[in-house]
Amino acid sequence: MQTLRKLLFPFTILYTFITSIRNGLYFIGILKRTSFTTPTIVVGNLSVGGTGKTPMVEYLIRLLKDQYTLTTLSRGYKRKSKGFILANAQSNMEDLGDEPYQYHYKFDNIGVAVDSNRVNGIHTILSEKKETEVVLLDDAFQHLAVKAGFYILLTTYDEPYYKDFVLPTGNLRESRSGAKRANIIIITKCPKSLTKENQQDIREKLNLKTGQLSFFTYIEFSKLVYSKCDEIQVDLLNHEEYILVAGIAKPQSFFDHLNGHLTRCLTFPDHHNFTTSDIENILTLAEKKKIITTEKDYVRLKDLIPSDKLYYLPIQTSFINDNELFDKTILNYVGTSTRDS
């Protein structure tokens, strides 16, 4: 596979040229960019999937939701609806897509909207939900038609963008220079023990521009797994067999965290829509064992697998250090940008 990707390097040059021309047309004003007086925060990446956008958006929700009225806006990948949707009590995963539905299912008192046209999505949010004071845009770093007020770029510790190449040779959606648009660059999925010396070495490789900040985060796993009606300490799972199911971009850390010597791991593509055949196979393999999945997969599986068999493991983003500076930077941007600041 790696050999094939190297052979496709001429297409990488072409793809890089095309995306650079497109970006340039936005920056010189030939293609229109729309800005908004309402604070808009983009969370995104340069690479394809698996950088931890969902837990980062959830971190921002927790940071802001008690002080500001906020609405998240996502594309709603693989949803079965079209156009703009603002979540309500009747909304389901098929209407919103798995990640927006997770926000809607998990957090009270926030708005959740989906629209592949982010400019239209923001305009409609501010029209239909006038009390919105902050818009969080999930996975919109390449959507240059929106000129957001603040950009957060994520890149993983194991596969940082400065070591990667543009598609199809690598996994980047655009050239590395796109990182210059970010206000903050976060290196995600780090070892919790990453030293300050290691952090400084990475910062030097990021080649930060003046004013850019960088932070280092790790994935913190819950000490409990949950079902609709039960919870179990992860430590106690070592005493029984169970099945692990994951349909996310990079599931290995989930498997590693829970994998016992008798555990069977079932892997599906990212954002997988589970079929009747998939469910039958999972239940057959599980027999009387518990089925444990990721939080994102749980919203797709919770109505398909008996509630007494299906559990999920929550995760969240945690900062190795300097989380106070990160929080202050975000709160300062929102506080100086809102109408009532």
Results as ranks from 00 to 15, higher is better:
301 L>V: 07
150 F>T: 01
32 K>V: 13
314 P>C: 11
71 T>E: 09
61 I>V: 04
108 D>H: 06
274 F>P: 05
72 T>M: 02
73 L>H: 01
237 L>T: 01
87 A>S: 10
115 D>N: 13
29 G>M: 11
181 R>V: 07
314 P>N: 12
14 L>S: 02
135 V>T: 05
261 H>Y: 15
190 C>P: 03
39 P>M: 03
87 A>V: 02
172 L>F: 06
274 F>V: 09
79 R>Y: 11
185 I>A: 10
325 L>I: 15
58 E>R: 04
248 I>F: 04
200 Q>P: 01
166 V>A: 04
32 K>S: 12
198 N>E: 15
31 L>R: 15
321 N>C: 13
214 S>Y: 05
5 R>Q: 10
209 K>L: 15
196 K>F: 12
116 S>E: 15
13 I>N: 02
176 R>W: 06
63 L>T: 00
119 V>Y: 08
117 N>Y: 03
51 T>R: 03
267 T>W: 03
230 D>N: 15
323 N>E: 15
52 G>F: 05
159 E>I: 05
136 L>H: 01
288 K>P: 00
234 V>C: 06
287 E>R: 10
143 H>R: 12
296 K>E: 14
276 T>K: 10
31 L>H: 12
189 K>L: 05
163 K>R: 14
222 S>N: 15
295 E>N: 07
132 T>C: 02
106 K>G: 07
1 M>L: 06
293 T>P: 04
130 K>F: 04
278 D>N: 15
224 L>Q: 14
94 E>T: 14
